[in-house]
Write a protein that binds this DNA or RNA. Structure first.
Lengths: 112, 112
DNA sequence: ACCTGTTCTCTACTATGTAGAAATCATGCC
DNA sequence: GGCATGATTTCTACATAGTAGAGAACAGGT
């Protein structure tokens, strides 16, 4: 697997968030999801930059939703994985699993 | 978890490789391990660059081994995780797990 | 001596990740 | 109808991580 076939870490997280959020996968929501699940307080700019790069690579697609806003609000731009995106997630998962094989978590010695 | 507390993807892989290789964790061996397990054909430069950055961050330490070479060979520089390195691996693992929660792999739709 | 195999170091470049401010838009209120 | 407000997206600039390959160091065999 040569060139640009592998995901960065944050790309990975974002892709997973989009996957699990389904129809609700728009920028702000993705940000919240990652923050809640990983405790990582990312800025919205980081999310959009990543989302756009993923779109440029063909791993996600976006479409502007109806201006459905409850209270105030610009139309949401919602994202979903493409076939290539699904493949990328699956591949990343496999790589990680085989590196993880045989390691028991949590690894002792970190002194928490 | 604000600033530079999170691992890049490749850093993560390298750290896991060092962890599992134990005493055998030197540059070339790490490279081979990653190549074999993930199918990712990384260059040796990438491995050392990453290893050095991890050392700069205090997640691994290195020491030059005895010039023990079987057949030809420069002395190996072998790496091991520090306490902070172990923590980092554990933290990365947790983040990933909570993002993975509820997603069944392989995700269908990738058309392999 | 020199060739060969193994490992490590160096330099330069590209891609990813981070940060925050600013623009856009619909709504509700006055 | 104009203005403050809340929710979202877009823009610009920068810092960090990942990639690539050539070349230096070193030990042994021939």
């Amino acid at each position: 697997m040569p060139k640009g076939e592998s995901l960065g870490e944050f790309e990975h997280l974002v892709l997973l968030a989009v996957l699990r959020l389904g129809v609700d996968a728009y920028g702000m929501r993705v940000r919240r999801e990652i923050a809640e699940r990983t405790g990582r307080d990312v800025t919205i700019g980081a999310v959009y930059a990543t989302l756009e790069r993923l779109e440029a690579k063909g791993l996600v697609k976006s479409q502007i939703g109806d201006s459905t806003a409850e209270r105030g609000g610009r139309a949401k731009r919602s994202f979903h994985l493409t076939g290539a995106g699904v493949e990328a997630v699956n591949r990343a998962q496999e790589s990680l699993l085989s590196m993880l094989e045989g390691i028991a978590f949590p690894v002792p010695g970190g002194g928490q």
